[in-house]
């Protein structure tokens, strides 16, 4: 931390240009995501709409993760579990509607699927959060990872729902008026959800709650000294983050119509985290930009070679070694540096 007393830029001015830049980036991203896939789809490039739908859904998960990672400094490595839970909340009721059994939950009703996805994610986040948040640092990373893997193995062992082989969703969640079977509708739903969730996270990050989380990220001892017990706020954020990822899982299940435990493998959690960090955890749109870069890169590289993980891994290592604040740092010179540890 070097201190310069000589040059003091006008920070109020700085903040204004930052706000302008934020608005510009927001407008640009919203426009691109609204127009590009639609045009591509209508001109017959249906495949690209698939890419964009997946991208937008994973962006939702990344934004959800960033609520605790970027804002709260909690490095959770288990968020793929919520995606899986959300997806199985669609798959399992649909399976029973098709093949019978478990009458209590057997339905194609989308509202029921959605409610189930959100409730189950919230509960799982609450229970694992209560235990995980008692720890810090490396412990927290590993414990969130372990709990996610626990869900993974639990689903694998459920032979009824395909176990390792996964489960095909024969009928998508049914809603009045709209039909998720229409790719463009599904994309529109996902896209609008993303915009709403980004806006919600934006509001939260500037709220009293958000400020408290930032304080806990920055200096937890200080929070205690001013009389704040951070635990309950962190737990609330942890649950909110899980619910957002559960929602992403609900959408992903409806998008792929094939779900398997592989969705919740810990390497999937790693991918969501990479999106957040690549894009820049301190920047509102960072996770979205990260998801765009990740998915496009994955697609382009895998077109070139089956060994695309190699250049991708190298890129990741190099970006950690040489690009310290994520891709979005190019767009926004952020003041905040993620401090050592949590």
């Amino acid at each position: 931390m070097t201190t310069t007393t000589s040059a003091r830029p006008d920070h109020r001015q700085n903040r204004n240009t930052e706000t302008t830049r934020l608005l510009l980036v927001s407008a640009l991203l919203v426009l691109i995501l609204a127009i590009l896939p639609t045009v591509l789809y209508l001109t017959g490039h249906t495949f690209w709409l698939d890419i964009f739908t997946r991208l937008v859904i994973l962006a939702i998960a990344a934004v959800g993760l960033n609520l605790i990672l970027g804002l709260g400094g909690m490095v959770s490595f288990g968020h793929a579990a919520y995606i899986g839970l959300g997806a199985y909340a669609v798959g399992i009721p649909a399976y029973h509607s098709t093949y019978g059994g478990m009458d209590a939950i057997a339905t194609y009703n989308g509202f029921f699927h959605l409610a189930l996805a959100l409730t189950v994610s919230a509960l799982f986040a609450l229970v694992t959060g209560i235990i995980s948040l008692r720890t810090r640092g490396v412990n927290f990373i590993m414990i969130t990872m372990a709990f996610a893997q626990m869900m993974y193995y639990a689903i694998v062992s459920l032979e009824t729902y395909g176990g390792d082989d996964g489960l095909t969703i024969d009928v998508r969640s049914e809603f009045p008026i709209i039909s998720l079977d229409d790719p463009l509708t599904l994309y529109a739903v996902s896209f609008i959800s993303l915009i709403i969730i980004v806006f919600l996270v934006h509001r939260i990050s500037n709220s009293r709650f958000g400020l408290t989380l930032q304080g806990a990220r920055s200096n937890e001892e200080r929070m205690l000294a001013i009389g704040v017990n951070c635990y309950k706020y962190q737990l609330a954020a942890f649950v909110m983050s899980g619910v957002i990822c559960g929602y992403a899982g609900f959408l992903l299940g409806n998008f792929t119509t094939f779900i398997s435990p592989e969705m919740m493998d810990w390497t999937r959690s790693g991918e969501i985290m990479i999106m957040v960090i690549l894009g820049g955890a301190t920047f509102l749109w960072g996770p979205v930009i990260g998801a765009i870069v990740f998915i496009i890169l994955e697609y382009v590289l895998s077109e070139v070679t089956v060994y695309w993980h190699l250049p991708f891994g190298l890129l990741l290592i190099f970006s950690v070694l040489f690009l310290r604040n994520g891709l979005a740092s190019v767009l926004q010179r952020s003041h905040s540096q993620a401090g050592k540890g949590q």
Binding site: I277, L315, L316, V320, G341, Q342
Partner: peptide
């Protein structure tokens, strides 16, 4: 001398490689 997040990302990259 980096934070845990950087460790996680870089070693994840190593696994892929």
């Amino acid at each position: 001398d980096r934070n845990h997040l950087d460790h996680v990302l870089a070693t994840f990259g190593l696994i892929l490689c």
